[in-house]
Design a protein around this nucleic acid. Structure first.
Lengths: 215, 215
DNA sequence: TTTATATTTATACAGATGTATAACAACATG
DNA sequence: CATGTTGTTATACATCTGTATAAATATAAA
């Protein structure tokens, strides 16, 4: 009555690594950091736990890779699409605000996941490095859009002011992203996008128009 | 050569519960959720692990109590001091912004701790309840200050607009709190407070003055 | 078709984890 | 000073966790 060895098919290293990372993100996002055990992850990925050590140096490496994957996924989804030639910077800014505050970027899974990783930042310098790199990256991209948007309105801010504006806009967007993601039922559809556009506009002294569903 | 049973002193239930909660917060904040084991917590609190079950129904209950304690601690520290008679609402608002964006409210421990708990929100409804209650509580307090602050400036916003303003101000404060706490070296001293006051002011259409160190 | 390779599974293992229970001793009460 | 209560420690236990290693088999190559 001994169960036969389960059948399997060989997959490319990249495919397997992706599957393991995705499984890790799913578990941390849905059930919390504690649920992301090697057995749980392997199960979710449809493989056995030995494969984790085969493709990663250990569980910590997998977690690290998953953090990086999640954050670049978030950034990519937020900065969706290439910069359109001749498009006003203010319009691009509005697109970013909208993308940041709607699913899948702003969702319970994305926020829960991000929170779990953030909790690991203090004890692991490599995780901290991902955090700070992600933060600066997003803020710099924001700043690179704020400058031309102000220029379009006839204003040329000092570097100090530009920095402060980028920090402030980043903060509102982050705050709204967080709250909308963690409490999705607390806001009407589109409410956060409107508030985001209005707030960023108020901070910058501009008027931002909603880019619409698919701008 | 058998070590003698360690000596101890009896303490009040409240004292012990507090010590266990504090130890839990210290561990989750410094070393992450994974470090908050019953043995680690008992060690940090200077007792043996049996006491946890004696004072709480289980580890989950302790975590739950610790979450509540941390959040009310944060709220209390932010809303420091009683409302001063005759003080302008705008001034109180500025005090809240300052308190939110300086230690101990905004610190790596406080943010890391909060993130760890937030990650637990999805799988545990009771944790989710603490999260949403805390969010609404803070936002309502903010709103209760924004209304008179606008009145002082001669504006009477509609309920919808008031709600939107509270959500927006809450978001900037949260975002700045988060970023300052998680990346304390990324900002000059006082920089975030200035940005916070300016941003909240811009959103509300008011001018907020820095209340100073001890306002 | 045979053989070699390494992907994948299966198992073992030491240590950690949460919980349950028994033993002890600090302190209050008489 | 004697005694009972219960706060506290100590230990046991089943389960889970990450890692290491051996065995098997899918697939490519010859």
């Amino acid at each position: 009555m001994d169960s036969p060895r389960r059948s399997f098919t060989r997959e490319s290293a990249e495919h397997r690594r992706e599957a393991l990372i995705r499984a890790t993100l799913t578990l941390i996002g849905r059930k919390g950091v504690q649920a992301a055990t090697v057995r749980g992850i392997a199960d979710e990925a449809g493989v056995t736990l030995g494969l984790i050590r085969h493709y990663f140096d250990g569980k910590d490496e997998l977690i690290y890779a998953a953090y990086q994957a999640h954050m670049s996924q978030l950034t990519d989804a937020t900065m969706e699409g290439p910069r359109r030639a001749g498009e006003p910077a203010a319009h691009q800014l509005a697109r970013i605000v909208r993308a940041s505050l709607t699913p899948p970027v702003s969702s319970p899974q994305a926020v829960g996941l991000w929170a779990g990783f953030l909790n690991m930042v203090q004890r692991d310098p490599r995780m901290a490095e991902v955090h700070s790199r992600t933060y600066y990256d997003f803020r710099d991209r924001l700043q690179a859009l704020i400058a031309p948007a102000l220029e379009e309105a006839g204003e040329t801010p000092t570097p100090e002011r530009l920095r402060a504006l980028a920090i402030a806009c980043n903060a509102v967007i982050d705050g709204l992203w967080l709250e909308g993601g963690a409490l999705p039922d607390a806001f009407d559809p589109g409410e956060l996008v409107n508030i985001g556009l209005t707030s960023v506009g108020a901070i910058l002294g501009l008027t931002l128009n909603d880019p619409g569903e698919e701008a």
